[in-house]
Design a protein around this nucleic acid. Structure first.
Lengths: 338, 338
DNA sequence: ATTGGCACTCAGAGGGCTTGAGTGCCAGAA
DNA sequence: TTCTGGCACTCAAGCCCTCTGAGTGCCAAT
């Protein structure tokens, strides 16, 4: 077990280090905090913390810096997070004012979060979840091309142009459209392909090719709904934190690899505060070993669920950022609820 | 007038500097190139070039580095550009294989260009231009919501959800839809708002509110078509060129300011080679004073036109990059032509 | 358990020295 | 007139050395 005072010392080290970016020594520690004991005593505590691998000295005669494990303990014991300022709340409100368009809302959200936290922010597009088909549309756009539109009950709209390679008969399109709407409306996305089993049988042999093309595109769209997407904002913020990284290049590269990033945040669990956090090397992704990733979940109309979050140096202000991410996630859920 | 040999010397300096990232001196110059004269003579030429502000010495006892003006002259006199390798051509072909979907094609293109040039690549979405309305669709998605879809003859599809705030009558929607299609099909985007003058008069007073909502959204979409957009790829490539910039942070920031970037590339003229180039401070945008921007235009089905390009350090391989940008622009035009 | 004291460590700053690539200029050759 | 070899000069960058001070670990005393 870790003694109370040692915990306090750890907390103080983390705070001072976050504020100053300098390794913190026993003396400056007793100056800035009132422990009621002398520097020598603190040094003993620090020796203990070092044994526990919670802090670490960059070199012999330097102050101490929290390790990933130290940050982790600090965050886990963090029982109150810094509440947002009025200005911040106001910023959230005014930022979220706007249209009901999913792309737009998510775009605003990610910029907002980046601005609030001064970190790189990310928003994952809602995943398939329990979403179901609201409607399907089939619109001729040229002689040989159809536009297929899929609308889910969570408000997501997807469209894709299908090249049929031959002129299409408007009557046939109308029939196909009607049948599709009849079969799919209200059906869960996960059940679409099952539901369409044998669908093609209802058409004449001459049409089968075209019907199959349309169905394939439809499956693709359902899949694209599953295939997740992420948007980022504030990449430049990383660069302004240059001192925090040996080199930012691997970090930028890791962030550009959206597939990896998606996998990472998808498998992150959120705790009882509603946030998930990976500190430093807890992210097994190479290139992110000096960054922490902080996420929170949001809901889209009670159906789809996805995550938003920030990426920053391990030496970030966890307290503020946690409350910012949480607040923005909540507002996002609320906004999407309408 | 600048003597021939001096021009040759400038060319050699630019080439060596691009290759080595080191200021180049008279001695290494005569070693690597066969001018048929001695280093001392070259020094005289260099003194001349320096008077003309085409090269510049970072400090007294150092070699020379081309100035923006020097690069400019070099590029303007560049009469042959490095042709693409077979592998590169192959890469382009295979990258462009895919769907007819505009988003998808542009996404592939920008990644391709970034990969080919090893720079940050950008693709501007096609602008309004001569595009006209192919069709308009109005689809109820919930009790109170409509989905408005606008398809232009260049294959661009835009959609937006309209919240009407009250239940909608399917018959009314059908009527509105029919009238819209009747009025707008084939109409140039630029003429849409004019064409719809008085459109609302054909509806009963009770419907006017709803009709206006739909029209407003439609105008917004036409405008969104005008309001341009840009996508980027390979931002991390900048970071790997860290040495080339005093600090990459301002560069990243400038790039994130897409509005500025758009304005910049929009007003860039392309020369007879089909490419436009701004070198260093020729970009009046702060933060881009150490970068060069290289663009080329592409066409979308002969109608819309926009630009693609790369952003990199002034010390970039202009010859290769120019041919890459040109080639990709050509392929993009071709792909979109289908 | 805590403290003051003390010897010890070491990164980083600062100063001075050396090196060598590179320059500018000049007088003589072509 | 143009080119060349030679020479004195410059100066960033690398190297080594020293110094400094923040910080440590440990011990004996409280």
């Amino acid at each position: 077990m870790i003694p109370d005072r040692s915990l306090e010392v750890l907390r103080a080290i983390v705070q001072d280090y976050i504020a100053s970016k300098e390794p913190v020594g026993s003396k400056s520690l007793v100056e800035r905090h009132s422990f009621g004991v002398s520097a020598a005593t603190i040094r003993n505590d620090m020796a203990f913390l070092e044994d526990e691998e919670l802090i670490h000295a960059p070199h012999t005669s330097a102050g101490r810096v929290p390790t990933d494990k130290g940050y982790r303990l600090f965050v886990d014991r963090l029982n109150e997070v810094k509440p947002l300022t009025v200005a911040e709340k106001h910023a959230i409100e005014s930022f979220m004012q706007g249209s009901a368009d999913l792309d737009d809302v998510l775009g605003r959200t990610v910029r907002l979060l980046s601005q609030l936290t001064n970190q790189v922010a990310m928003v994952q597009y809602p995943t398939l979840g329990k979403a179901s088909v609201q409607t399907v549309e089939l619109i001729p756009v040229t002689e040989t091309r159809l536009l297929l539109i899929l609308v889910t009950d969570s408000g997501r709209v997807q469209q894709h142009v299908i090249e049929l390679g031959e002129a299409v008969d408007p009557l046939f399109i109308a029939e196909l459209r009607a049948k599709l709407i009849g079969s799919l409306t209200g059906i869960a996305l996960t059940a679409v392909s099952e539901k369409l089993n044998g669908f093609v049988d209802g058409f004449g042999a001459a049409r089968i090719g075209q019907v199959n093309l349309v169905l394939e595109t439809l499956y693709d769209q359902v899949d694209a709904n599953r295939q997740e997407k992420i948007i980022l904002s504030g990449t430049a913020k990383l660069a302004r934190r240059e001192e925090d990284f040996p080199s930012i290049s691997p970090v930028l590269e890791a962030i550009e690899e959206q597939v990896v990033l998606l996998k990472l945040i998808t498998e992150m669990q959120t705790d009882n505060h509603g946030v998930g956090l990976r500190i430093g090397r807890e992210n097994t992704v190479e290139g992110l070993s000096n960054t922490s990733i902080l996420v929170s979940g949001y809901e889209n109309g009670g159906n789809e669920i996805a995550k938003i979050g920030v990426i920053g140096p391990t030496r970030m202000d966890y307290s503020s950022n946690i409350s910012a991410v949480r607040a923005v996630a909540r507002y996002l859920t609320k906004t999407l609820g309408n």
